[in-house]
């Protein structure tokens, strides 16, 4: 079982974000970075599958500047076997060139499965996986919350709005992982030290010119506090009036 996992370096979300001068990017000062949560679950799914089968290889790919090697090494410290850094100085807002570069790197790899997170928590486009599948002509199963693989076929549960869908598919396939599939393991301290000795191949890539560009970033409006208009039955007519005339929800 040979599985590729595509991971993305994203800002840790518990910080307060500000917009950088120019208005199209966030200010990176003071931010911490980690592997996208959904991608960590994809790594964990790949590791468990390899452990279940008993043999195989888990290869981790990430695209971007040299700093993404830190995230690749985190996946290696969790137990992945080797990493491929697709080196690009910067990555724009258009996911098609990203998916193309990943698909080119994956095409002749002989992978039984290509795992990604359902989306990255920074931009939340959620299209890289499906576009890779399209470019490689592979079946694509998105938002997987349960996964079984046996005899060259997969069976997955997908999370829909208010429903679940069970699908079956042949391998190789592209699978995007949703919350709930697993909880990722912590890198052990020996794993962290061992990751430095695992192979990490650097392949420079040239991305196609982006066709989507960010014009403007804006922070959500400050939430204003609630208003107490009265208590008991007497306040109801005024509440209904405000909901109708002001909030316009009735």
């Amino acid at each position: 079982m040979k599985i590729a996992v595509c991971i993305k370096r994203v800002p840790v979300m518990d910080r307060r974000f500000t917009i950088a001068p120019g208005g199209t990017t966030i200010d990176e000062v003071g931010l911490a970075y980690d592997v996208n949560d959904f991608d960590l679950w994809a790594v964990e799914a790949a590791l468990r599958l390899k452990e279940q089968v008993g043999t195989g290889e888990v290869v981790v790919l990430s695209l971007g500047p040299d700093v993404v090697q830190e995230q690749i090494r985190k996946a290696l410290s969790m137990g992945a076997d080797r990493g491929i850094h697709l080196q690009a100085a910067s990555v724009g807002a258009d996911d098609l060139p990203v998916a193309r570069a990943l698909a080119d790197a994956l095409r002749d790899g002989g992978y039984d499965g290509i795992f990604l997170g359902r989306l990255a928590v920074d931009r939340a486009n959620g299209v890289t996986g499906p576009v890779i599948a399209e470019l490689l002509g592979l079946p694509c199963v998105t938002a997987v919350s349960k996964l079984e693989i046996a005899n060259g076929r997969g069976r997955a549960q997908r999370e829909l709005e208010g429903a679940q869908e069970i699908v079956e598919f042949p391998l190789p396939a592209v699978i995007t992982v949703d919350q709930g599939l697993n909880t990722e393991r912590l890198p052990t301290l020996k794993g962290i030290m061992g990751a430095k000795k695992k192979p990490l191949e650097v392949r420079p890539v040239t991305l196609d010119a982006p066709r989507v560009t960010v014009r403007r970033l804006a922070l959500p409006p400050e939430r204003i506090g609630g208003r107490i208009i009265g208590e008991g039955v007497g306040a109801v007519p005024e509440l209904v009036r405000l909901l109708h005339d002001e909030a316009k929800v009735l």
């Binding site: 911490a32 301290l189 962290i192």
Partner: peptide, 21 residues
Amino acid sequence: FAIDGSLAEEERAVRDSVRRF
């Protein structure tokens, strides 16, 4: 004081694993 920047990658990784534990 952005002391994180004075730590090596594996030092931060060790710290983060133990913190999460």
